[in-house]
Design a protein around this nucleic acid. Structure first.
Lengths: 107, 107
DNA sequence: CAGTTATATAAGAGATTGGTTATATAACCG
DNA sequence: CGGTTATATAACCAATCTCTTATATAACTG
């Protein structure tokens, strides 16, 4: 899945995660999204381009403005991939044998 | 959350995701993990360091070997963060009004 | 002890990232 | 039309990433 590269690497940046958190509250324009950051507008525009490329946001055109909102696509893909790990982790968590076996050697 | 940076950026690399997928099948040593890749051993060692730093894997010492396995920490953190987005996305999905409103303007 | 095996670390090269400033485009406002 | 507002793009720079090769460490093996 080539898109997982884009999705995870988009989420790796704290500014972009903050933008998504803001969009979780509702649609916002580029300037509205830029406002809380000590960063120029072009920098935000680029972050948005990355998020859009990763399938994490969608944009419409409204006059001069270009409001953004969350997109379900990438999140779904990420969830699906993580499910694989979650399953194993849950299974391991329940294997008490393992836990005990790992505690023994220390003492 | 500073750790989300590390976790997401660790997951952004396809080699590292493949390593995690392999570890979902069970513990493996560095050489075992390196084998499927056309990449030198030092490269794999570094990927493992990144994964460990992100809290995605754990390692024990067993003689010369250093078997790796999945760790629950980072996955849990990621899940928790994604929950925020999922909630909004699920809510939007159910708002039929919005969907219709967006279809109208096109025609 | 000497040789081999398993892994880590260091140094360096090339690509990518994330910011900047300057400028372009395109819609709105009077 | 002319000025302002919203956003995008280009060119550039410093930092970081991901490999490489070469070398170090440390444990098994005879």
């Amino acid at each position: 899945m080539a898109n997982l590269d884009a999705a995870f690497s988009a989420l790796a940046d704290p500014t972009r995660r903050a933008i998504l958190a803001r969009l979780a509250l509702g649609e916002a324009t580029v300037m509205e999204l830029a406002e809380p950051f000590e960063m120029t507008q072009p920098a935000i525009s680029r972050h948005l381009k990355v998020l859009e490329g990763a399938g994490l946001i969608l944009r419409r055109v409204q006059g001069t403005k270009r409001p953004c909102r969350l997109a379900p696509a990438a999140v779904a893909e990420i969830d699906q991939w993580l499910a694989m790990l979650r399953q194993t982790l849950a299974a391991n968590y329940n294997r008490l044998d393992d836990v005990l076996a790992e505690m023994k050697p220390q003492e």
